[in-house]
Amino acid sequence: MTRQEIESQLLTLSLSDKAEMVQSLTKTLNMSGKGITKTPGVCGGTACIAGTRIAVWLLVEAQQLGISEAQLLQDYSHITAADLVNAWSYADAYSEEIAAAIRVNNEV
C-alpha cells in the first residue's frame, strides 16, 4: 500500500480514530509521546498527558490565551512536542469534553 493510499484512508476516519492513530504512530516513532490518559483521582479524572498532572484542557486554554507551543514546552519541560501533538489531537476529537472542562475550571 502506498503512502497516498494510506493517507486517503486516514482522512476518512472519525476525529477520535484519527487521534488514536496519531497516538499510535507517535509511540512507534520513539518521540517520547506519552499518550493521553484519564485516571480517577488525578486532576478530577480529566484527560491528561500520561504520567503527568497536565490536563489537556489546561493546554488548550493556554493556547487559546495566546501561549505558544514553544512557551508551553519551556513551562512544562518534562513534556515533549509529541505530547502536545497528542493533546491537540485529543482536544480536536473530544472538543465538547475539553470545552466543558474549561468552563467548569473557570467557574471555580
Rank of each mutant, 00 (worst) to 15 (best):
94 Y>E: 06
5 E>Q: 12
63 Q>T: 11
77 S>C: 09
14 S>C: 11
56 V>L: 10
105 N>S: 09
74 Q>D: 11
106 N>W: 14
44 G>E: 04
90 Y>L: 09
68 S>Y: 04
31 M>S: 12
56 V>E: 09
43 C>G: 08
29 L>F: 02
66 G>F: 03
26 T>Y: 02
32 S>W: 06
98 I>Q: 06
106 N>V: 07
66 G>C: 01
33 G>S: 13
60 V>W: 03
107 E>S: 02
22 V>C: 06
70 A>D: 03
96 E>T: 06
68 S>K: 03
65 L>A: 10
94 Y>P: 07
44 G>D: 06
64 Q>Y: 02
70 A>M: 14
13 L>I: 12
44 G>Q: 04
58 L>V: 04
68 S>I: 07
94 Y>V: 00
32 S>K: 14
78 H>S: 08
90 Y>N: 00
107 E>C: 04
23 Q>D: 15
40 P>T: 08
86 N>F: 09
25 L>H: 04
89 S>T: 03
28 T>L: 15
2 T>S: 10
23 Q>K: 11
84 L>A: 04
32 S>T: 09
30 N>K: 12
101 A>P: 00
91 A>E: 00
36 I>E: 06
5 E>V: 06
39 T>E: 15
49 I>Y: 01
25 L>D: 15
65 L>D: 09
46 T>Q: 12
40 P>Q: 12
49 I>A: 00
30 N>L: 08
102 I>Y: 05
97 E>A: 05
50 A>W: 00
28 T>I: 12
68 S>M: 01
102 I>V: 07
54 I>Q: 00
84 L>F: 00
